[in-house]
Simulated assay, not measured.
Amino acid sequence: MFKKFTFRKQKASSFNELVEEAKKGYIPNHIAIIMDGNGRWAKRRAMPRIAGHHEGMKVVRKITKFANKMGVKVLTLYAFSTENWKRPQQEVDFLMKLPQEFLGTFLPELVEENVQVRLIGQRDGLPAHTRESVEKAIKATQHNTGLILNFALNYGSRDEMVYAIQNLVTDSNSGKIQPHEITEDVFSSYLMTSSLPDPDLLIRTSGEIRISNFMLWQIAYTELWFTDVFWPDFTEEHLLEAIVNFQRRGRRFGGV
């Protein structure tokens, strides 16, 4: 039935039926999203780039709620990369204020919906007001047992792996671990995602088909799904479409 389904043309009742049908299948435990296209969305509307980022923030809210409803265990959102500091200062300043605005208004709802907030990335490089707003949300939701909303903020996968190697070398030099004891699982335990499962599904919006230094180790066997839709236009229907597409695939992890 899914093959003949055009998501954006369905009535609410049909969409809800498809949600329930999809929930009978395997729901990805961990979905990671590269939220791309905010600036281009705004440009097409003759609006400043920051307007696109603000609109994208609203989408985070509804996609978080829908992922939680679908039974997703972890939702990792690529919010700001280590390379994004190269952007114009006005845009960077605005992006650094978004977590404060988003979590300030959405935090009570996150608590009510049993969502737990987490962060991967270099906290020390963030402005104090950004870091404090995220840490407040992490503390307020630390005992929640539902969806883990994991923000990748000031995050870069190469940076993450270099940091992990540095810590491994330090532990090896101090005798805590021997070189022959370093396995894939051990290395994974030194990454920022050590307490999380690897993503089952990676989504990138806006039509770009690249990974952009995002979770390079963790997505070794992740299913990839790309869409031309800009992030501010990404809807619950698009996420359902990605999940249904994921459910049709055969994951062999190198086997047959």
Rank of each mutant, 00 (worst) to 15 (best):
F7V: 15
F7S: 14
F7T: 12
Q10S: 15
S13F: 06
S14T: 09
N16C: 06
N16S: 12
E17C: 14
E17D: 14
L18A: 14
A22T: 15
A22N: 06
K23T: 10
K24L: 12
K24T: 13
G25L: 14
P28I: 04
N29F: 05
A32R: 06
M35Q: 08
D36H: 10
G37C: 12
G39S: 15
R44P: 01
A46C: 09
A51Q: 13
A51W: 00
A51P: 01
A51T: 11
T64N: 01
G71S: 02
L75P: 06
L75M: 08
S81W: 05
T82S: 14
E83I: 06
K86G: 04
Q89V: 13
Q89E: 15
V92L: 07
M96A: 11
P99S: 03
P99H: 01
E101I: 12
E101G: 01
L103V: 02
T105L: 01
T105E: 11
T105S: 07
F106G: 02
V111A: 03
E112Q: 15
E113G: 03
N114H: 10
R118A: 14
G121D: 10
L126K: 10
L126Y: 06
H129I: 10
H129G: 02
R131Q: 15
R131H: 10
S133Q: 01
I138L: 05
A140D: 10
Q142Y: 00
H143R: 10
N144D: 12
I148A: 04
L149H: 06
N150R: 13
L153S: 14
Y155S: 08
S157N: 12
A164D: 10
I165E: 00
V169F: 07
T170V: 07
D171S: 07
S174A: 11
Q178A: 15
S188D: 11
S189V: 08
Y190A: 07
S194D: 10
S194E: 05
S195M: 12
L196K: 06
P197K: 03
P199K: 09
D200S: 10
L202Q: 03
I203H: 01
I203S: 03
G207K: 04
I209N: 03
R210P: 05
S212H: 08
S212Y: 09
N213I: 13
Q218C: 09
E223L: 00
W231P: 07
T235A: 11
A242T: 02
N245G: 08
R249M: 02
R249C: 02
G250W: 00
R252C: 05
R252F: 12
